[in-house]
Design a protein around this nucleic acid. Structure first.
Length: 226
DNA sequence: AAGACGGTCAACCGCTCCTTC
DNA sequence: CGAAGGAGCGGTTGACCGTCT
């Protein structure tokens, strides 16, 4: 049914295609991905164009190895957010969700998995399905790091009322986590207002041991790094 | 030297969420 | 308010490359 005409190119991008896409974005700006293939003169689907731009062509993309502090951040953020790569990427300048996901899958998940069983205490799962109402969270792996800490409790931990003296967190880092928590909480509030959402972290939802996260100085021990 | 194997990474696919009408 | 279309996300796949046997 005229299928041949609409067949889209797949596979690796050529330099020429990159150039066309870049020119198009320069001219029309990001967004409206539906129009991008036609505007750029590319025989690619909008998803492919978007992905290529976001992951490789966008300015300020960092390539190459992850720095020590980036890895540290990724581990902590993953502990906090789970597999929400786009949120994690949003906190790490120059890195894309795809990059981080790949890095996690190929480097960190294995290391952490092998170390977790011996060094990380078993995480406490919510008491019932009711305390974890959103399928979005159940999407996470069986090793999901959710525990019984509410957002409010998490905030207490962040504001210093929690027992974090074991490994105090400095001001700068603290404010980083605060702002992150704020974003997550805003999202949760918005979702709970709507009544239901896959990714809702409703009040009372339990998902992460923030105290542990903040005081976790053993990440690199865990990683077995040197 | 060559084949097997494992790791990495770019890209695709399918699903869900969001926005518009 | 519901339906349809668009946009974004995470999981998965497959090709490529380096290392091992």
């Amino acid at each position: 049914m005229g299928r041949l005409q609409s067949v889209r190119k797949k596979g690796s991008w050529t330099e020429e295609e990159d150039l066309l896409l870049r020119k198009c974005i320069d001219k029309y700006g990001e967004g409206k991905w539906r129009h991008v293939p036609a505007r750029a003169g590319l025989n690619r689907c909008r998803k492919s164009c978007r992905l290529r731009w976001l992951n490789y062509l966008r300015p300020n993309i960092k390539r190459g190895d992850f720095a020590v502090d980036e890895v540290d951040l990724i581990i902590r953020l993953h502990k906090l957010l789970g597999n929400r790569w786009s949120l994690i990427a949003g906190r790490i300048p120059g890195r894309t969700a795809n990059d981080i996901k790949n890095f996690w899958n190929s480097h960190l998940s294995k290391k952490l998995n092998s170390e977790n069983s011996s060094t990380i205490p078993a995480m406490k799962l919510p008491n019932s399905e009711a305390s974890c109402p959103s399928p979005g969270w159940s999407m996470g792996p069986a090793t999901d790091t959710r525990v019984d800490v509410t957002l409010q409790q998490a905030e207490e931990a962040l504001t210093g009322s929690g027992p974090t003296e074991q490994n105090p967190v400095d001001e700068e880092e603290n404010s980083f986590w605060k702002s992150l928590l704020f974003e997550v909480e805003e999202e949760a509030k918005k979702s709970s207002r709507d009544g239901s959402s896959d990714t809702a972290l409703g009040e009372g939802d339990s998902f992460v041991d923030l105290e542990g996260l903040l005081s976790d100085g053993n990440l690199w021990d865990m990683m077995g790094s040197d």
